[in-house]
Amino acid sequence: MNSAEELKYLLPASVISVGVQTNKPLAVIKKEDILQVAEKVKEMGFDNLSVITGVDREDRIEVIYNFFSYKKKQNLVLKAILDRTSPSIDSVVSFWKVADWLERETYDLVGIKFNGHPNLKRILLPEGWMGHPLRKDYDMSIEQFVTVGEDGEDIVSTDGSNLLRGE
């Protein structure tokens, strides 16, 4: 049996359904049990966390984890469904250190909060940026500008008059 079916066999209460993501086994899990599932997945030998993706569907937000095992040469995909008004899930940074920056990026661009993350701040956009750009309801018509304050940190505002040259 493939790795998603094995996970369902080991943790039947946490896995909602088993499917396929084009050619990789996919397991949809409950978001409250993510830490237990992560521990089991690490025990099964998946030591490489490739990517964490956040997708904004119209009525929900999905977070997708892609794993790979160097020893067993197998793939596994985990998907968790979060609600759109306040999406949050526990952080897996204690199992895979690369989740540190991957989760920060997902928080920055899609707006998912990861509980238990040591340093959940914006990483690609400056600190005071308003909104999460990869949401479908992000307003592209508001232009935000960045200036540098006294201590070298960024200040974001919608008024660019002290940066732009007047014509």
Binding site: L125, P126, V148, D154, L163
Partner: peptide
């Protein structure tokens, strides 16, 4: 980029 613009101006 917007984040780099004040540094280029400086």
């Amino acid at each position: 980029t917007k984040r780099m613009a004040p540094r280029v101006k400086q």
